[in-house]
Design a protein around this nucleic acid. Structure first.
Length: 243
DNA sequence: CGTCTTTGACCAGCGC
DNA sequence: GCGCTGGTCAAAGACG
């Protein structure tokens, strides 16, 4: 399991672009969120990663395990945050800050793939919320996953380009909920962002659906220096377009 | 000028 | 049927 690469596993699905080209010995291809992205820091710093399936099946699954484990540090203090809880399709938050082993990339991918009971994540903790969650479970399944993060900023840069399309005040919460849609043409992924009603220092981000494209800021590593072990960034295009 | 945000209106689902 | 609530639409304005 790669230390990075959770991002494409989470947010990428078929149809895939052109298959990755054959690699020379020592080559490695990987990706992670934008170097300036706090999300990249999250995924790599926890050391859990993405798929390890055969290269070439899709850019989302063809990453070598031999990847750098630490992207450039996030220097903007306002952009730094602590991931606190993951929310999977059973609607249960799993603490991450104290957990020795946060959920694996495979587990997250499974949640995003809708594998499991409901594929619906509800944020409720009160009885009323649980009723809402029950209702949500009975609605048509949607790939949805939520993160509860401690952050000063609400908009966590996950590498994708989002367009805000709505803002709504939510019952029992003093904080409005913001609605975003992936601005890439043909991609219907949505996300909701709101401050936690109990602790405004936390931001609850809920992703719905899977991207039909790679992240615009995905970084691909084209080669690895044998002596230093460092990777060379090839660009922001899928491996198949590098030649 | 193109893109994005804002914000009020509208719609659908649900409970009573 | 009615009201409440969450989610979405779309026009207008802001911004680079």
């Amino acid at each position: 399991m790669a230390a990075v690469g959770a991002a494409p596993v989470l947010f990428y699905q078929q149809p895939a672009p052109a298959a990755a080209p054959a690699l020379a010995a020592g080559d490695a291809i990987g990706c992670f969120f934008s170097p300036s992205s706090p999300m990249s820091s999250f995924f790599s710093s926890h050391g859990h990663g993405g798929s390890s399936s055969t290269a070439g099946s899709s850019p989302a699954s063809g990453f070598s395990p031999a990847l750098p484990t630490q992207p450039p540090p996030v220097t903007d203090p306002a952009a730094q945050f602590d991931i606190s809880e993951y929310l999977f399709d059973d609607g249960i938050f799993a603490a991450a800050t104290d957990a020795a082993a946060p959920p694996s990339g495979a587990a997250v991918a499974a949640a995003m793939d809708g594998v499991g009971a409901s594929a619906v994540a509800a944020l409720g903790r009160s009885p009323a919320d649980q009723q809402q969650q029950q209702a949500a479970v009975e609605r048509p399944r949607t790939e949805r996953i939520a993160f509860r993060t401690r952050s000063e900023i609400e908009i966590l840069d996950d590498g994708y380009k989002w367009r805000k399309y709505g803002k709504k005040s939510v019952k029992n919460s003093p904080n409005p909920r913001n609605y975003y849609r992936c601005s890439t043409e043909g991609c219907s992924v949505k996300k909701r962002v709101e401050r936690d009603r109990d602790d405004p220092s936390y931001v609850v981000t809920t992703y719905e659906g899977t991207h039909s494209h790679v992240s615009p800021s995905t970084v691909y590593y084209a080669s690895q220096d044998a002596a230093s072990g460092r990777f060379f960034v090839a660009g922001t295009q899928p491996p198949g377009s590098l030649h």
